[in-house]
Computed example of a mutant assay.
Amino acid sequence: MQNTMIKELRTEEEIRSAFSVMRQLRTHLNEAQYMDLVIEAREKDHYLMYALFEEDSIVAVCGFKPMITLYYGRFIWVCDLVTDQKIRSKGYGNELLSFIHGWAEDKGYESVALSSGLQRKEAHKFYEEKMMYDKASYVFKKVL
């Protein structure tokens, strides 16, 4: 990780450049759906997207949004976090999520929270053992 850089993805071209990595997590989306959702989330929900680059290649992507709830107070909700599956377990996820922690602290947020699919056991191990996250709740969903 000698030549890494973290950068906010702001333009449509930059956001589109992250699709190949993000699609590894959000397999149900095609590129047009991805672009539509990211653009709408940025406009309506203050969604931000950052990427970790190694040299000129995106190796990890994180999408998150600042939120306020009575349960968590002022916090950052990590909506999407993925490292390119070809190069996982090299510290990229740790580097990018640690950056998000620092970003949140600098802006006065109290915590960072996320949910992770039940099947993603390796991700759970990463969050709990490497990133020191606590299991705080179950997340429930009802499709309408």
Rank of each mutant, 00 (worst) to 15 (best):
K65Y: 14
H124S: 01
M22N: 11
I58T: 01
L37W: 10
Y72G: 05
V38R: 08
M49F: 06
L48P: 04
S17E: 09
T11Y: 08
K65D: 07
G63S: 07
Y34F: 14
A18V: 01
E31A: 01
A60R: 05
V143K: 12
H124D: 02
A113P: 13
E55K: 08
Q2V: 09
N3Q: 08
L25H: 06
L97Q: 03
G108W: 13
S115I: 09
D45M: 11
G108E: 04
E128M: 13
F53T: 01
V59G: 05
E122V: 08
T4K: 01
M67D: 10
N30H: 06
M132I: 14
D56T: 15
F53H: 03
E129S: 11
K86S: 15
F53Q: 01
E129F: 11
V139W: 13
S98E: 07
A123R: 04
E13A: 10
A32S: 13
N3P: 08
V78D: 05
I58D: 02
K44W: 10
K7F: 05
E105W: 13
R120N: 14
M35W: 10
L144G: 09
E43L: 11
K141Y: 14
R88E: 13
A18T: 04
E128G: 11
Y133M: 00
Y72Q: 06
V112H: 11
E95F: 04
R42F: 03
I87F: 02
Q2A: 08
S115C: 13
Q85K: 15
Q119W: 14
Y47W: 03
L144T: 09
E14Y: 07
R74F: 12
Q85D: 15
M131A: 04
I39Y: 11
G93M: 01
A136M: 12
G93S: 02
C79S: 11
F19A: 00
S89E: 14
D36G: 03
K86L: 08
H101E: 07
L81F: 15
G117A: 08
F99L: 06
I39P: 00
T69M: 02
T11Q: 08
T83S: 05
K125R: 14
C62V: 10
E13G: 03
I58N: 01
I100T: 10
E14H: 04
L70Y: 07
K44S: 10
R120D: 09
F19N: 00
Y133T: 00
L97N: 04
M35K: 05
Y109M: 02
R120T: 07
Q85G: 12
I15A: 02
W103T: 01
K121D: 13
Y34T: 02
M22W: 13
A60T: 11
Y127W: 14
S116E: 04
L97A: 05
E12V: 07
Q24N: 06
R42H: 08
M5D: 15
A60C: 15
K107P: 07
